[in-house]
Each structure stands twice: as structure tokens, then as C-alpha cells.
Amino acid sequence: MGDRSLILEILRWVPFATYAALAALHARRWFSSVPAEAIEYRAWRVAGVLVHGALVLALAWIQSRLPFGTMWEALSLATLVLAGSYLLLEHLAKSSALAAAFFSLASLGSLLSAANHEPPRWPVHVQSVLFAAHATCGVAGLALLVAAGLLAAAWLLQYRELRARRFGRISQRLPDLAALDRLFLAASIVGTATLVVGGSMGVFWMLSQGRELQTVLPKFSMVLFTVVWNLVLQALRRREDFSIRAAAWMGFLGILPASIVIWVGAGGY
């Protein structure tokens, strides 16, 4: 293995190490008596996401190509967007209670991305502004929908604890129901919009390349399903007589199609 290859290999593992360390640090708040403020590590979280962002750019520069030559590389980008979205959500909710969950998921994504690294099958000529916009918006939208699902799961957990009159650690550490609901809905709306933009860019790119949609039919269908699922959820959520609990279940189950899109996407463009 040459020096350059070794450096690339090491760089690919840095996001996983960073997110795993952050997840472990934040998991402490669930098990120790140290209060949340004392183990905030806000600067560490921001630094971790910035390090990942810098690495994506560095890899693109070293390899002289956009950083999504394979779907595994795109997965790394997705985890970056997930972690970045988390920072935004944390700022809006004024709570870092979900840091451990988000960074655990980000470390899992980074692990899969680093462990499955393979040479890019896509020729450089397919990479264009349209393709870059498609991939970036696509993974950002999917990451936000996964984030929405996680927030919905947190809402369901908090709801269950409060209804069951269990005023223990879980209830104390999770944000309030109103904040979780607002964040879940915001992540779902922005995630869906971003995914629609990403998908549209993909279609335009394929047309510009003279390719047929049939070649990506499974991925296209799943994206369509994910978008429709979330649009229905948001439409129902606006109705006064539709319960937040049902909406939260829909949001939580929405993780599944979003994950399938990521998975199916790994098979090709």
C-alpha cells in the first residue's frame, strides 16, 4: 500500500472515530449523575462535524473528484448532513438530550462507509453540477428524514413515560413533548423538500446524459414512496383532529423507506 493510499485509508476512518467518541461521551449523561450542563461538549460536537466536513473536502481534493464516487462515499456525506442537522436541531430545541442517539447513528453510517470502501465505479465524466446537486440534496434530505424519525421516536418514548407516570431518568433527560413535536415536523418538512429537489436534479441529470429512468427504477420508486409518505404525514399533521401520536408513529416508520433509499442507492446511480 502506497503512502497516498495509506493516508486515504486513515482519513476514511476519522469520521467514525470522531462520531463514536462523541456518542460515547454523550451516552454518559444517561448513566452518570453529572448534569447535562457539565458534559455539554458543544464545542466538541461542532468541531467533530467540522472535521468531517473538512475531510470530505480533503478527500475530494486529493482524489480530484467529487466526494460521491460510490454510494458508500455518499453515505459518509449523509452522516455529515445528519450530524450537521442535529447541531441545527439542538440549537432550535435548546437541548442536547438526543446527541448520543444522533452521533451513534452517525458513527454507524461512518463505519459502514469506511468499512465498505471500494474504488469508484462511476467515470469522472458523469460528475457534473447537476449530479453534485442531486447527490448532495438527496443525501441531505434522507438524513433529515432519518433525523425526523429519531425525533418522532423520542416523542413517543417521552409520551409513554409521562402517560405511565414514570418520572425517571428517561423522562427527565428527554426534551419536552412540545419541543420534540416542533422539531420532528420541521425536520420532516425540510427533509422532504430537500429530497424532492435532490430527486428532481437526478432526473434532470439522467435526461441530460440521455439515460432512461428504468435503470434506476427501484431507487426512483422508493424515493417517490418516501416523499409521498412524508407529504401525507405533513398533510394529516396539519389537521386539528389528527393525533400527534399517530403522526409521530408515521414519522418513526418513515425511517424505513428513507433507509431503503440509501440502501438501494448503494447499488448504482
Binding site: Q158, L162, F167, S171, D176, L177, A178, A179
Partner: peptide, 9 residues
């Protein structure tokens, strides 16, 4: 505290 946990601000 409980009201805050359920309904926020």
C-alpha cells in the same frame, strides 16, 4: 415541571 415537560414554555 410536569406542565413544562408536556406543553413546553
Amino acid at each position: 415541571d410536569l406542565a413544562r415537560k408536556i406543553s413546553g414554555d
